[in-house]
Design a protein around this nucleic acid. Sequence first.
RNA 1: GGGGAGAUACCAAAGUGGCCAACUGGGGCGGACUGUAACUCCGCUGACUUUCGUCUUCGUAGGUUCGAAUCCUGCUCUCCCCA
Length: 376
Amino acid sequence: MDFILKQQANNSEARAGLLKTDHGNIETPIFMPVGTAGSVKGIHVRDLKEDIKAQIILGNTYHLYLRPGIEIIEQAGGLHKFNGWDGPILTDSGGYQVFSLGDIRKLSEEGAKFQSHIDGSRHLFTPENVIDIQRKIGADIIMAFDECPPGDAEFDYAKKSLELTQRWLDRCVEQMEKTSPLYGHQQSLFPIVQGASFPELRETAAKHIIEIPSDGYAIGGLSVGEPEKVMYAMIDVVCPILPKNKPRYLMGVGTPVNILEAIDRGIDMFDCVMPTRNGRNGMLFTSEGTMNMRNRKWADDFSPIDSNGTSFVDHHYSKAFLRHLIVSDEMLGAQIASQHNLAFYLWLVKEARTQIINGTFKDWKGEMVVKLAQRL
RNA sequence: GGGGAGAUACCAAAGUGGCCAACUGGGGCGGACUGUAACUCCGCUGACUUUCGUCUUCGUAGGUUCGAAUCCUGCUCUCCCCA
């Protein structure tokens, strides 16, 4: 997996790059739609590719392991064959579930004991078996198994947590070396910087992971409850330490504004459930600001969903019709909203890339951040 | 014609002397959502008021009572059964 840095923006840390994988190239900065259970909720693979223009999607180790089970995915010949997406796939390791399922798991040196949220059955994730699972899923990018502490974690806890994450990372690397891809394409491990909201921990973490030769580096444990300012500050601490010639992935972020701010600070890759989840819940992101489609004011607005939008749905359906679908709880409403939001997110990062290459990113970003924060 | 049941807020439906401006659900109106336990969750929903609070409400007109959505009487309307 190669990364080519195409262009560094003027008076900004923003970069335009090209990440080459065995399943195709990824132009960065990029947004990666989240497909936890192997499916980007409500979206056909064809629309992901042709309409939304996604270049890489996510899957989740924890969810796929519980259902359908890794044996099934192996039998299918890997997740690409199973879900019909032939582009690159990144899998999260389940580290985030250590955070989000906090009530039903226990951490130890060995790993994390989980109870399934589906049936309560007990399972153990270790750095080793999480690598094995991701090998079997066939992810192009495999995430290290980490602990993601909450944004308000105390220093002592955050420090211990980070040290555990670092030891787990070393075990992930070892397991990667001991194992090989099963389906003939290359798989790369991305280490993850933790350290909660403490600059000194973030710095330590970043310096630790760059000792490990990797095709990319991730920043985790942000947008988990801490103020946005803190998130940006942590990015500012970490990015300068990370190697320039490798992609940087900010995990789980975020709002359109978050993404532009992070690109400005040197981040290349993003993922977030926001476009799909908020879409299902009736919220649209556009280049002019956000819209809550449940609001009465759209009831008789027969103009296109987004006249600036790049998706088929933006021009084919009206705001009033979409509102009707969402208010009526019609599943097509959730699909249209998700498709629009994802297309918008992909447009946003592509436009950012263009602006970086043209040398106009900083000004453009300044204007966009104001517009994006508006409520329509 | 005879017998029975019932009328509560936008709808449905609890409440049958004071804890009732009135349970609950729906609908309506807002809000939240960041490596997805989420097509989910949270508010508000008689009027005026920032809050405290005040005022007007339970078909309608009277009455009993310190006090009535709740008890009594008349009236109006609706539904069901039998002819």
